[in-house]
Design a protein around this nucleic acid. Structure first.
Lengths: 150, 150
DNA sequence: TCTATATTGATAACAGTTATCAATATCAAC
DNA sequence: GTTGATATTGATAACTGTTATCAATATAGA
């Protein structure tokens, strides 16, 4: 079964770029994270293994990983980017309790279908999506003694 | 009917902050835009009316407008924030081009319906949601003309 | 092994945003 | 209206995350 390393190697070869120990290590450590990874955490963990690696190499490698679609970049409010693994991972959306922070992952095939339709209508090629439903979970509603709809 | 100016004035008063001509003008010009406003465009238009206004005042005022929930801040791929009017505006979701940053607003009643169903299934009381479809717009696809790897 | 050239780490540069500060404006109390 | 405590302003320095530059080095095909 094809894996991320082979895919990255192929991509580099195809672009006449080179497979280096730094690139291997960065991908390796990136894959050891789950969910959204911040440059900062990634860089810390990388430096444990090899303190000589420069931050520029990390940014450059992440950009390559995004180019070959193994990784997706997100921007959040605080101005920092996060990076998310995009290969061998099933897509899902999030239900988030704004009171306790609990999150539930879910999928909904029909919603996905409508998303594609919307993109087609506007001439977009859909690459990914993010959907977050924000609400109050059962637990918190009981605890706070709030009525079910508020 | 209550309007943005009264709401902002009340908010400032409540926080023991002051109602100034600069704040009035910034809100006024902000409201003359539609959709997602970039600081840059906003600042240009403001300086036409009063070239003495400083960029810091613009940032400070936008932060206040976000605090009082008249405005919502978004961060997109290119690292720039955009600001969106949040009052007297119907809820909508976003289609975002990850290449040029162009955004299109849309609504889809069926998707909204399924969101409610999902929340009910997990015992959540839905408060709000955010859905972003990320892709490549027609323009950028033509311009770049580079097929994705894989 | 040799050689063209891609890659590296250090760091300067850059862009967007925020903090600092002295001068000024606001507004509640009188 | 005047006063005075203090919030606000504009200019700009500082800060943060990211990217570009560059000389030294590593890679990989011949």
């Amino acid at each position: 079964m094809i894996n991320e390393f082979d895919l990255f190697k192929d991509f580099l070869h195809q672009q006449k770029l080179r497979w280096t120990p730094q690139r291997k290590m960065i991908l390796d450590i990136f894959l050891s994270f789950d969910g959204h990874v911040q440059i900062e955490s990634l860089y810390e963990k990388i430096r444990v293994q090899d303190p000589s690696i420069g931050i520029a190499t990390l940014y450059r490698t992440l950009k390559l990983l995004v180019d070959c679609e193994l990784v997706e970049a997100h921007s959040f409010q605080n101005g920092k980017k996060t990076y998310e693994r995009m290969f061998h991972v099933r897509h899902h959306d999030h239900l988030i309790c704004t009171s306790c922070g609990k999150t539930i992952e879910f999928e909904h095939p029909l919603i996905e279908k409508y998303q594609v339709e919307i993109c087609e209508a506007y001439g977009f090629t859909l690459k990914s999506h993010k959907m977050e439903l924000l609400g109050i979970c059962n637990n918190c509603r009981m605890k706070n003694n709030n009525p079910p709809f508020l």
